[in-house]
Each structure stands twice: as structure tokens, then as C-alpha cells.
Design a protein around this nucleic acid. Structure first.
Lengths: 150, 150
DNA sequence: TTCAATGCAAACACTTTGCAGTCGG
DNA sequence: CCGACTGCAAAGTGTTTGCATTGAA
């Protein structure tokens, strides 16, 4: 119902999660999530709040945080912590993991995926007898543009 | 003077940094840093505060934060952010980079280094025309012990 | 003698929580 | 109707900052 076709899998997963946990579908949740999906990448609570407010809704910041935490619980979203103390959230697409290349000057983020690196990670974990559940890889440096400008 | 031989390079680097920035060596800084070096790994402000206080010193939390930030500025220490909002600090040993394998249950941290992964990272960065300055790789999962207990 | 450093407390920014009212199933 | 959800404001959290004072160079 609230789902566009592009994110149908997401709404289905959410519905399933809500169902299995006797949680409820609400107007506000739908608005928050719709805006989250629209903003698409690396969204923080304030971005969402602004976007939602600009669209004419009056939804409390608390509800936004609660919704983001819900999505995190549901495993649909990943929380990412930044040095300035803010947390940003990213849509977690199943089986479509990627890592980040981050420009330390302009903040540009390039996503990438490298099967070979992942394979080696699994190998390292196995050597230490860890059962891997997830990982985070971030490469920091200057993007081509900033490298030129500086 | 305040430097044990093991961390001599550290005290020298610090002295050099202070000198080049007209900053001062103080009693408190030395105490904080000495305790930081003693605790050795993945220390947070409160750990330090406790350790210092237990040793009979009365040094403000603010000073501890200021000192840790100083070390970060000096590039001698790396700040790491945790999901619960705390920041922990780790001694940054030059040319001795390592990544982390973190147990999501007991919090155990195993350090590792993998040249092959680093090589692939450099390759990825080059493909995107990034000039790499650093990276962070964290693998999350269950350690052997927790895997057994659960 | 100067100006960085300190301790304290107040200020901060982001996030969570308590509560009374609301609304979905 | 039950109990999860909401908005609001108040409370929390770890960290930073303003200020008068201290102390290193």
C-alpha cells in the first residue's frame, strides 16, 4: 500500500517483521520510512526530520529516532557513527553489501564491493575461529577532484 | 624524563609536537599519558579517569579529554567510536597498522594484519582515483568462546 | 611575565525516555 | 478493548567550553 514497486521487498520485509513482533503499522512510521527511502543514502535523523517537516507533516523527532531504531532492529538499516557524534543510517540491501571510500576533504562517498577482500576477511576470521556476521571497511583519502584542487 | 624506555619513541614524538606548537609539558598531561600507555589498548576517557583517580591523582575529566584530543591531533592516537556513543582511544604505533576482529557478544578484540587485503584496498582506491591516507576495517562476529556458550 | 593548561561547572549536541492521550488490530 | 504508538518535554549521555586561577617556559 505505502510501497512503491522499487522498494517492494523492503515493505514486505518490514510488514513481516512487524507481524512477527506484534508491532503496528502507523501513519507516522510510513511517512518516516517513505522519506527515508526517498533520501536514499546516508541519512541522519535531522535530514529526515527536515525532509518530513518540509513536506508538511508534524512528526516528532522522537518518533523518527524510534523508527530508525526499529529498522535497525529489523536488520533493514545499518547505523553508522560519525566523528562529530551524529549517527547516519543506510538502507541495508540484502545480499548487496558494499564498503566505502570516503574523501577526507569534501566528504564524498564512493561505494564499492570487492569479493576478493571479502574472501580474505572470511579467511582471517576463520583463522581466529570467529563466526563472522558482518564487517565494516572504510578507506579514507583524497578523491581525484580534491587531490587536484589542493 | 617521564618516559619509560619502551615508549621512548612516543615521548619523543610528543615532545616534538609540543615544541612545534608552543604547547607545554605539564604534570597532568604526563600523568594522563602515563596511564594511557599503561592501560595500553582501547582505552576510553572513563577508564583513564578511573585509573588515574585510583592512583591518587585529582585530574579533571576535561583535562583527560583535552589530553586525548591533543594526542589525536598529534597523530599519536586513534579515536574509535562505539555504538553506545563512547569513544575509545588506541595508541597509534607508526608503521604498525592493524585491523580489528570484534566479538559482538563479549566485546573481545583481536588485532590482525593482512597484507593481501591492504594491497587490494590500494587497488580499489586507485581504480577510483583516490589517494589513500588510511583505512579502517572491522570484522564483527562471535568469538570461539561465545559461539560455544550461546 | 606571558600565555597555555587546569578544575570546575555549565553548556552542548544527539539521542532516549516518561507520560497522558491516541489509534491500529 | 488492549496495548503499541505518538508528541512533547524532560532527562540522559559522553564530550566540550567559559572562566578565573595556576604554573610552565
Amino acid at each position: 500500500m505505502a510501497g512503491d514497486t522499487k522498494h517492494q521487498w523492503f515493505w514486505e520485509a518490514l510488514e513481516s517483521f512487524l507481524g512477527h513482533h506484534q508491532l503496528k503499522q502507523t501513519k507516522q512510521r510510513q511517512v518516516v520510512i517513505r522519506h527515508f527511502l526517498k533520501l536514499d543514502r546516508h541519512v541522519d535523523a535531522d535530514d529526515l526530520y527536515g525532509s518530513i517537516r518540509k513536506a508538511g507533516y508534524n512528526i516528532g523527532l522522537a518518533t523518527i529516532y524510534r523508527t530508525l531504531n526499529l529498522l535497525k532492529e529489523a536488520g533493514l538499516v545499518e547505523q553508522r557513527l560519525f566523528a562529530d557524534g551524529r549517527a547516519s543510517y543506510e538502507l541495508l540491501i540484502p545480499n548487496l553489501h558494499h564498503d566505502h571510500l570516503i574523501c577526507t576533504t569534501c566528504g564524498k562517498i564512493v561505494e564499492f564491493e570487492n569479493k576478493e577482500i571479502e574472501r580474505l576477511q572470511a579467511q582471517v576470521a576463520a583463522e581466529q575461529r570467529f563466526t563472522l556476521s558482518s564487517h565494516r571497511l572504510e578507506l579514507y583519502g583524497l578523491c581525484a577532484r580534491c587531490n587536484r584542487t589542493l
